[in-house]
Design a protein around this nucleic acid. Structure first.
Length: 578
DNA sequence: CGGACAAGCTGA
DNA sequence: CAGCTTGTCCGG
């Protein structure tokens, strides 16, 4: 009797169980197949994770209850195990990402060969693509305005390529272009079955790293630095790393494209750069407005900004602060307004005249706790307030975009207009004549160890809206730190200038990639206490511990060595912020 | 996870 | 001691 091992899709049950395979389903069951089984009197879904196993003696086996359909192919089941180890989470969660969104009962016939060899604009990055694909691990520092398309086409020529883009939208656009170019495309997750059938280039966002391709030919990751590639839920796997591991296992090239590759990525692969002239041409002009000597009363509004606002054209202003004012002071005595309960800073309430504590959320009237004056000064105005002030300065309508606005601004705003928003505005718009970072220091000096890389990524996003140097668009950066490595790298259109100093800083502070980190929270006292000597445990502070190891392998091994039976804890490996 | 079952608590 | 809550164990 054939026996398979099944991992049930049941939360908090990371255990496998053996079942017999009824003869009528012989051919439908293999490693990865999605099944239903009876477990403790109920029917649950799960994956076949091993075939032809010898069950432990003394258990009465039950037959599989149902074959739901196709699931991740065997090598991906193995890769899922690796990812679960690498990011210290349940295999089940990873297998879910690797499974089709709806039951797949059969695969379509693979498409024929490409209808037309995908055409490329001559010289348009094709040389660089060839150069990159000739390596097993390449990081191409592709400037913001350069087109990733030639890389996708070049990868597709070799057979079943996997192309990842940071958003579903970006993936769909790239997929459309490939399809128009005559390349058969499977867009994940919609075309899961077509991807599994082979013969197509598979294009998709984060979860497409788990696309069911057989005989992978090459991997291309577009905008590989993008944090959208990181899964937020535990296990916090990163799609570029999963795709890279996959390519490595299959012995095929993996190419990461990014205008600002992360230090992890630079450590992983071989850097391929375009010519200095090409990289320069791919960045817009970046203007620095030095605010060190600025009158504090002019606040966020430099003469340069006013000139741009009045000049017509589409101007996008970025300020990463929501609401009206995030910090207030008394105009009479100068005291900063603080919460009477927790001493946290008070923010202006979104509606009405009151204030709300940013830490504990308690509300109170807008009156100075020191002198009772009701005349307040806004120390940190938010987007809502800034919109009103920009409108007054510009003499034309200013639209506000926040995380809540979900449609694309391009669809409803005139071609020339002023838009202000949090960084979400950079995702909601396609084009602009200028992007102004009203307070870039907030990004540069943010208390997160990846702040510099994240700030650089914002500049890259902004550069996408305004285009390359010859298009005439520009980025304006208002800052009191004009000599910051990020600012200099962007001004000189040379992302490489950031890497060296940033790597040195991280090394000094023993932060990734010099070390590997995990944040452990929840019911974790026992867990962290049992961790081995090759990791360093700090904390707890605020109920979370920080675990540090020499590298990701040591970290994963140490975390995997401690049993977690029943403990309700969360482990975030490679945290974005610590 | 969720069902089964045992041990512990309460009120008459 | 029935009736209920709470805790622990276990699944093929």
């Amino acid at each position: 009797m054939r026996v398979v091992r099944v991992l049930p899709d049941v939360a908090a049950l990371d255990k496998t169980f053996d079942y017999t395979v009824p003869e009528s389903w012989e051919g439908d069951v293999r490693v990865g197949t999605m099944v239903r089984v009876s477990l403790h009197g109920r029917r649950v879904g799960g994956w076949v994770v091993a075939d032809g196993v010898t069950p432990p003696p003394g258990v009465r086996l039950r037959p599989l209850a149902k074959v739901t359909g196709w699931g991740p192919p065997a090598p991906l089941v193995d890769l899922a195990r690796w990812a679960a180890w690498r990011w210290a989470g349940p295999v089940r969660a990873v297998l879910r990402s690797a499974s089709p969104p709806a039951a797949v009962r059969g695969l379509p016939a693979p498409p024929g060969p490409p209808t037309a060899p995908a055409a490329l604009a001559p010289g348009d990055g094709e040389g660089l693509a060839g150069e990159a694909l000739a390596r097993q691990r390449a990081v191409v520092r592709l400037p913001p305005a350069a087109d990733p398309y030639p890389f996708a086409v070049a990868a597709a020529r070799g057979g079943n390529a996997l192309v990842l883009a940071p958003s579903v939208d970006a993936a769909a656009r790239l997929g459309d272009r490939l399809r128009r170019g005559g390349v058969p495309v499977a867009l994940m997750p919609r075309d899961w079955a077509r991807a599994a059938a082979g013969g197509s280039v598979v294009v998709g966002a984060r979860a497409a790293a788990w696309a069911p391709l057989a005989e992978l030919a090459a991997v291309v990751v577009v905008d590989a630095h993008d944090e959208a590639y990181r899964e937020e839920r535990s296990p916090t796997w990163n799609a570029w790393e999963v795709a890279a591991e996959r390519a490595h296992r299959d012995g095929v090239p993996c190419v990461l494209l990014s205008a600002c590759p992360t230090l992890e990525q630079l450590a992983w692969g071989e850097l391929v750069t375009p010519s200095r002239a090409a990289e320069r041409a791919g960045w817009p002009v970046v203007e620095v407005v030095d605010r060190r000597r600025a009158d504090p009363r002019t606040g966020l509004y430099s003469d340069r900004l006013v000139l741009l606002l009045r000049g017509g054209g589409r101007v996008v202003c970025v300020l990463n602060r929501k609401g009206r004012a995030q910090l207030l002071s008394c105009a009479a005595c100068g005291e900063v307004l603080r919460c009477e309960h927790c001493q946290g800073g008070m923010a202006q309430a979104d509606e009405g005249d009151g204030m709300r504590c940013r830490s504990c959320g308690r509300a109170r009237a807008s009156v100075c706790q020191q002198c009772g004056s009701a005349r307040l000064r806004k120390l940190r105005p938010g987007v809502a307030r800034v919109r009103e002030e920009l409108e007054a300065l510009a003499g034309r309508a200013v639209a506000e975009v926040t995380g809540g606005t979900d449609d694309r601004v391009a669809d409803r705003e005139p071609a020339a207009g002023v838009v202000v928003g949090t960084e979400a505005v950079l995702h909601r718009m396609d084009a602009a004549d200028a992007v102004v970072f009203l307070d870039f220091d907030q990004e540069l000096l943010a208390p997160r160890f990846r702040a510099a890389e994240q700030a650089m990524a914002l500049l890259v996003r902004a550069a996408r809206l305004v285009g390359g140097r010859d298009g005439g668009g520009r980025i304006v950066v208002q800052t009191r730190v004009p000599d910051h490595d990020v600012v200099r790298a962007a001004v000189q259109a040379d992302a490489g200038r950031l890497a060296g100093p940033e790597r040195a800083r991280r090394g000094l502070l023993r932060l990734p990639p010099a070390t590997a980190l995990a944040v452990v929270s929840g019911d974790a006292d026992g867990f962290v206490a049992a961790l081995g000597a090759d990791v360093e445990v700090m904390g707890p502070s605020d109920g979370t511990w920080l675990v540090r190891a020499a590298d990701p392998t040591v970290l994963a091994t140490a975390l995997a060595a401690v049993p977690r039976a029943g403990a309700r804890l969360r482990i975030e490996v490679d945290p974005v912020r610590v």
